[in-house]
Amino acid sequence: MHMHKYEKIWLVFGGITLIVFLSVIGVSAFAMGHHPPSDMTTIDPEKVKETAPFDDPGLKKIGDNEYEAVMVAQAFMFGEPLEVPKGATVHFKVTSADVVHGFSIPGTNVNMMITPGHINTITHKFDEAGEFLIICNEYCGVGHQAMSGKIEVN
């Protein structure tokens, strides 16, 4: 098959670009542990309040400046405001007691869909002090626009 010289150039260029992109994503997924926030951990959505750890939601210290934030998203709140020291690593563990909600902290990579029946986890290190907002970014009902939470980083 005859191919123009330029055609070979851009095909090789495109192929290499694709390989580089996929390798970077592969390395960050398998070597650095980056993964989507939702996994296959499930929970009975009707028994959220009786199921551990969601029977006792809130912030728990699990290590040196490391916390686990167990939260139940439900129309139209995320629970009590959280307070963590600067530099804290927070492992969010969130599920929904009713419908699909969003869980997003603007300015960070925390952004996940909270699906009833599933437990969603994401980890974030709060390097800067300030007040962070948790917002629901999935339309969940008439009070959706008022659904927010707060994280105070001191």
């Binding site: 123009h4 010289k5 330029y6 260029f13 495109g14 670009t17």
Partner: peptide, 19 residues
């Protein structure tokens, strides 16, 4: 061969934008 200088430039510009 057809002249593909412009095509090469366009492809590289789009590629550069994507990268």
């Amino acid at each position: 061969e057809p002249k593909l200088n412009g095509t090469l430039l366009s492809v590289m510009l789009v590629g550069g934008f994507i990268i």
